[in-house]
């Protein structure tokens, strides 16, 4: 195992250890926090594919997180009420099965990403950031006005969706589901970034002109990465909805986009386990400092500033440097 792979595994193992340790010591609340970290890390792993490897600074990834969440909420609430989600053009029944809802959430998210990506990728730089933000805000305001599914108040569903053979209400079992999906997304990400596609994508980030001169169109590469990235974030949104048994427009807001970005930047842009470390530290700070002052995010801001200025590789970059010294 290479040094990077060892570090990535160690960061993931630390998260798993926290959850199991908390379970053994009878602290289900901490298990749930670890689950939240795993789910947010999953969203970060998704964003990292676009932001870190593809160089696309999307400030609208909450839209995919929220769509994944709403798909889950809508299917679950219809399943509970025993009504179909839609009868046109054909009848789609509600579902309370995670294995049915996840692909649905990912497909709907991916379709949204094709549209948003194809339009946003006509721009670059600051304009790209603004266009992705604008799309996310459009969907956010749509959700607020969508009375059928709770509008501004959001949509609650009281029973967490089920997974065959598991009790999803047991905190450790739901953690296991989330952690396995996170590990799968990390493995997928590792494969993709080392593949032919990954080679071309990372080249397009670093030197667009060269990629074109090599006979490859950057647009197709970037759109594909954007859609893959969105589908992973959509899956994270589905899990997050199940964690809270509640979805609201807040999942779609630009605050959420910013938070997912913070996980990636805090942990290390373009590093596989960066979002895991980032989300873990974020939740740790939220718990430790949130009790002290409601302005804890000001401290987070300072930390972020320090990382960006002095350790652009994020937490993972610092750890990797530390390992090299040993």
């Amino acid at each position: 195992m290479g040094r990077d792979a060892a570090l990535n595994t160690a960061v993931f193992a630390a998260l798993v250890a926290v959850a199991f340790g908390a379970h053994v010591y009878g602290a289900p609340y901490v298990v749930t926090l670890a689950t939240k970290a795993a789910i947010l890390a999953l969203a970060g792993v998704g964003l990292n594919l676009a932001l870190g490897y593809g160089g696309m600074v999307s400030f609208g990834h909450a839209v995919f997180f929220g769509i994944g969440g709403y798909v889950t909420g809508i299917f679950a609430s219809h399943a509970a009420a025993g009504t179909p989600v839609t009868t046109f053009p054909f009848t789609i029944a509600g579902s309370a099965e995670m294995l049915g809802i996840w692909p649905m959430a990912m497909v709907v998210t991916a379709l949204a990403a094709v549209v948003i990506g194809a339009l946003s990728l006509r721009t670059t730089g600051v304009y790209f950031i603004m266009v992705t933000l604008a799309f996310a805000q459009m969907v956010y305001y749509f959700a607020i006005s969508w009375r059928a599914y709770g509008g501004e108040d959001g949509l609650s569903f009281y029973v967490r969706n089920s997974f065959p053979g598991l009790n999803t209400f047991a905190p450790l079992q739901f953690f296991a589901i989330s952690a396995v999906l996170l590990a799968m997304a990390m493995a997928f990400s590792a494969l993709v970034t080392r593949s032919r596609f990954g080679l071309a994508l990372q080249a397009a980030r670093a030197n667009r002109q060269r990629v074109m001169a090599s006979g490859i169109r950057p647009f197709a590469l970037q759109l594909t990465a954007f859609v893959l990235s969105a589908a992973i974030v959509g899956l994270a949104g589905a899990l997050y909805a199940d964690l809270n048994r509640f979805v609201s427009p807040a999942m779609l807001s630009w605050h959420m986009s910013g938070e997912i970005m913070v996980f990636v930047i805090l942990g290390g842009v373009g590093r596989l386990a960066g979002p895991v470390a980032g989300a873990g530290v974020f939740i740790l700070l939220e718990q430790l400092l949130g009790g002290v002052s409601e302005y804890w995010q000001a401290l987070l801001g300072l930390l972020l500033l320090a990382i960006v200025l002095y350790a652009p590789g994020g937490i993972l970059g610092l750890l990797a440097r530390g390992m090299r010294r040993v």
């Binding site: 993709v192 593949s195 080679l199 090599s214 006979g215 490859i216």
Partner: peptide, 19 residues
């Protein structure tokens, strides 16, 4: 390898390590 990839095609392969 990037130049070889551009000339030969097959950019959209996702799982096999390029190296």
């Amino acid at each position: 390898m990037l130049a070889v990839l551009g000339a030969g095609g097959g950019v959209f392969r996702f799982l096999r390590p390029a190296l």
